[in-house]
Nucleic acid binder design. Structure first.
Lengths: 363, 363
DNA sequence: TTGAAAGCGCTAACAG
DNA sequence: CTGTTAGCGCTTTCAA
């Protein structure tokens, strides 16, 4: 019956108890058809009685693969990544893979360690959302060594031959900004983790596989403004570190410094929390005095007042696409890497309205 | 330099190239002090040149452990579980372990499969939040087989000899209900996933290791009401399935059917979204007409109006505790299993006030 | 249809 | 300090 020892019943024990050889027992247990039904039944029954559990480690040793996919992301409690993780998990599970996941907390050193450890554990493939701005040599080495690799959300410029899956950030910004322009806004502020850098941001073709999402979103804003014939004013671009508190401060600053701004586009889900809070505390009425577009659709977007208009990423699709591309790469190492830029979607709610629109007369 | 072949450079290749034996190479690479500095340096250099990556699978084969912890949870996009996961990941990483995570989507069959697969992969220990109400024989077998096992959030009654980590749900409810009673409320409704079952709920000592969280929270409500000399009325207990939409419906029903209710306690984070929305749409003014206490502290709790008062679980601590207990169990299989009931915390905001309190005169 | 033997890549005695 | 030997548990030829 149940055994208490640790590394307990092996296939040899089963074979002995069933009165067959190790190899026959193996064949019976893996459902090979090179065994007589009689012996198979016997072996299977004996195995169950003994509480035999096949040792996947030993099997991997021989087959050379682990049926395991690694995922390395900065933070699994971040809504975007946890949602992506969930859809990655489901997709690969349907193909018989498990998920080895590592959180880097934004530390380049931890990312290197994670990639190292996971590749030591011989994952069959790896999905990585690299730490922004960090060195990516370890990823290049990994890709060069033939490990299937898919980049998620953030590119690694120097790593070639690797698939990349992300929302189309330029288009996402265009959705937000065009919506605001369409409402009549002319002075539109932006809360961004990226620094305004004219050379990159105003480039004719900013490349999603070369720049981080925040940069692309800022570039999209610049493009949309420019295309509409509006002036991009540096003082309308509020830089914020990656935290809700920093975004709160940045938004407050933007409101104080540039009173002519009538709309704000906030380019990240974490930042949106702080931006919304800042607007609430500012004394401005939203959307009468200021319109706000957030990023990513949250549970709370329809719960706050005014309900928050957002640019929503297809988070599920991003996860599924990354997983499927990785599975393809595992099955066929020679396949061409692809860049998947998935479309964002504008969800219009109540936080955006024409400038100066006032249902309640201003005080 | 970099190799393109798949299972490429082994320790034998390194040994040959360095002109030493396999074992010396091994010793050098694992940093054993039984090697001369000279040979170690040489081996390490050669290994780097060849792009050698140790094969963790082979190592596990010998050592018998994988430095991997499995986690099986219903849904990693759920805020509670993703936060717990993040702190589990950090804790075990600090001890050199990686995380193999599996999402069961609430399906008992998937949970069985996950536990099976992870134990085949020879994880050194397992943290499981079992699917509610499902059969737990697979967990008992696992525990009996000597695998370190910690139960998270939900107990598995028939599985003995296993640690259990959870918030103290009865006390959590007491915090919420006592707060409301203290404000003067007498007719307090509850939104619960549990069915009201007098035998369990009113038991003198409802056991956290025998009943699911929702049952314990309901029991805590009953206890707190009873202790305060208030009547527990079945029509004040609104059952809801586990979704925001169901909670919306349950809350709406509760408001319509029992107008004497002046406060509602919502016993779960997912349900809180629906409850809050229902209150907004009901025409009731919160907190003037109805007070609301939510469960779990969300990003949005301070963002909505009124700001939501909640009972907050120490999610981080729960994750860390589960991880630490598991590490202990791995290190010492003979240690006594423990039940950790962690304290909840009441976060008082604006959604709770004395009944009938009216800053704005009723219409 | 079954068994015997080889070996995956590595570590761990045990000699030298 | 270093090399030799013997496996870990399993799959997989290759014979019988």
């Amino acid at each position: 019956m149940t055994r208490t020892a640790h590394q307990s019943v092996t296939i040899v024990d089963v074979a002995k108890a069933a009165g067959v050889s190790k190899s026959t027992a193996g064949r019976a247990l893996t459902g090979s058809d090179e065994v007589s039904a009689r012996t198979r039944d016997k072996v299977v029954r004996v195995a169950a009685e003994l509480g035999y559990r096949p040792n996947g480690v030993a099997r991997s040793m021989i087959t050379g693969n682990t049926e395991t996919v690694g995922v390395v992301i900065p933070d699994m409690s971040n809504r975007f990544f946890s949602a992506a993780l969930q859809s990655i998990a489901r997709t690969i599970r349907q193909h018989g893979y498990e998920l080895l996941v590592s959180s880097t907390e934004g530390e380049p050193a931890l990312e290197r360690r994670s990639v190292e450890v996971l590749s030591t554990k011989r994952v069959d493939g790896l999905i990585v959302a690299p730490v922004l701005g960090a060195d990516t040599d370890h990823l290049r080495r990994l890709a060069d060594s033939g490990t299937a690799l898919v980049l998620l959300d953030r590119p690694a410029p120097k790593v070639s031959g690797t698939s990349f899956v992300s929302v189309d950030n330029v288009e996402a910004s265009r959705l937000a900004v065009d919506h605001l322009i369409g409402l009549g806004h002319r002075h539109i502020g932006i809360i961004s983790e990226a620094r305004y850098d004219a050379t990159v941001t105003r480039a004719a073709e900013p490349s999603p596989t070369a720049h981080r999402p925040s940069t692309m979103r800022l570039a999209g804003y610049v493009r949309a403004m420019t295309d509409a014939g509006l002036e991009v004013r540096p003082e309308h671009i509020a830089h914020s570190a990656y935290s809700s508190a920093a975004s709160y401060a940045a938004t407050t600053r933007l409101l104080n410094v540039t009173p002519q701004v009538t709309a704000i586009y906030c380019t990240d889900n974490v930042l949106s929390v702080g931006a919304f809070a800042a607007l609430q505390d500012s004394g401005c009425h939203c959307p009468r005095d200021i319109s706000l577009v957030g990023f990513d659709d949250h549970d709370w977007a329809p719960l706050v007042r005014p309900r928050l208009t957002v640019v929503a990423q297809p988070t599920e699709v991003i996860g599924v696409t990354a997983a499927e591309d990785l599975l393809t790469a595992i099955a066929d190492p020679a396949r061409e890497p692809a860049t998947h830029l998935l479309p964002a979607r504008l969800v219009t709610r109540d936080s955006t309205a024409p400038p100066g629109l006032s249902l309640i007369p201003p005080t």
